[in-house]
């Protein structure tokens, strides 16, 4: 770990996820003079104001001009700086997609995009500010590592890992407070490796971002009320995805549900499906997320409930999937 601090659940309840990012950035800024921060008039919203105060000469607010911010960052990175770019996910992935693709990823520069207000976490702002298609875009860009942390503590780990790993990163975090999943940052976070947050053999829920906590809560409920043993994987790294954990889940549990605050096209569910299909192994499979529809307006938790990606929606989906015909034998001939 680059950072000397251990973030705990207490930090996570007193600081929003972006505030933890803001602190991590200050920590990196103190240790590494080449770290610079950029934003497009969203310093306050993306919580990097502390970096601005401490390092005014290494802070650049380019105004409401995301395309320019990405190009400027690419120039800086090629000249030896390590820029952290902060703006909303929707703008980071769409407004400046060409600069992300060409200036950052094609050139393979050492720049880190911290895409805040991801999914429907800025719920009341409506679909102009929801980012439910960003993963589909960024996941397909070569050289780019894509992370969707489950909570504030994991965001800290992701930011530190991004600093330590050369190349472009896209880290997608939520607005406001996330439900706290991890007690502290020492739980063995590793890029590209899913974290098993609940063990089980009946079905595996592969979740990312804010949906991991919901899946974990659902797994506990199903254990107590339905006697089901549900494995929950925190798939924080969307690319490169943990193929091994996915195949193991297919083999061990024969039922998989993916959950994401993103369209079911192009995001986590698609990534998992690609791995399964390529492995030549089928299993009962359900993708929870936005069903190719723009989300309603509302509080994040209300949208998650409406879309069926909160614990209630996940519990219902698990019960349905348990009825699907995939047997617990070793004979795959009747199933593939």
């Amino acid at each position: 770990m680059a950072g000397g601090l251990t973030y705990t659940a207490i930090d996570s309840t007193s600081l929003s996820t972006a505030e933890i990012y803001g602190q991590a950035l200050v920590e990196l800024g103190e240790a590494h003079p080449e770290v610079v921060a950029l934003t497009a008039d969203l310093a306050k919203s993306t919580k990097i104001g502390e970096f601005q105060k401490k390092f005014p000469d290494r802070f650049f607010n380019v105004g409401i001009a995301e395309q320019n911010m990405f190009g400027v960052a690419a120039g800086m990175a090629r000249a030896g700086l390590v820029p952290f770019l902060s703006t909303f996910s929707q703008f980071a992935s769409f407004r400046s997609a060409d600069q992300l693709h060409t200036d950052l990823c094609y050139q393979n520069v050492n720049a880190k995009v911290i895409a805040t207000h991801s999914g429907t976490s800025f719920g009341q702002a409506g679909s102009t500010h929801h980012a439910i298609c960003d993963l589909a875009v960024v996941r397909s860009i070569p050289n780019l590592t894509v992370i969707c942390p489950a909570d504030g503590v994991e965001t800290y780990n992701a930011v530190m890992a991004a600093y330590e790993t050369p190349g472009p990163f896209y880290i997608r975090i939520n607005r406001g407070f996330d439900r706290v999943l991890y007690k502290d940052s020492n739980y063995g976070f590793e890029l590209g490796k899913a974290v098993t947050v609940h063990e089980g053999t009946d079905l595996t829920i592969i979740a990312t971002g804010s949906c991991v906590f919901q899946a974990w809560e659902a797994a506990q409920f199903l254990d107590q009320n339905d006697g089901l043993k549900i494995r929950v994987l925190d798939m924080h790294t969307i690319k490169p995805i943990d193929k091994e954990a996915i195949i193991k889940a297919v083999m061990d549990t024969r039922r998989i549900i993916t959950v994401e605050d993103h369209n079911v096209i192009g995001g986590l569910g698609s990534a998992v499906a690609e791995v399964m299909a390529e492995a030549g192994k089928g299993c009962a499979f359900k993708k929870l997320g936005h069903q190719d529809a723009f989300a309603p307006i509302g509080l994040h938790e209300d949208i998650m409930n409406a879309v069926g990606i909160d614990s209630n929606g996940i519990i219902n989906a698990v019960r349905e999937t348990m009825k699907m015909d995939f047997e617990e034998d070793d004979n795959w001939d009747d199933e593939v």
Partner: peptide, 13 residues
């Protein structure tokens, strides 16, 4: 934009 970033990097470093 890349040029502006390069010029700013010269200033920072």
């Amino acid at each position: 934009s890349i040029a502006v970033g390069t010029a700013l990097a010269a200033r920072v470093t």
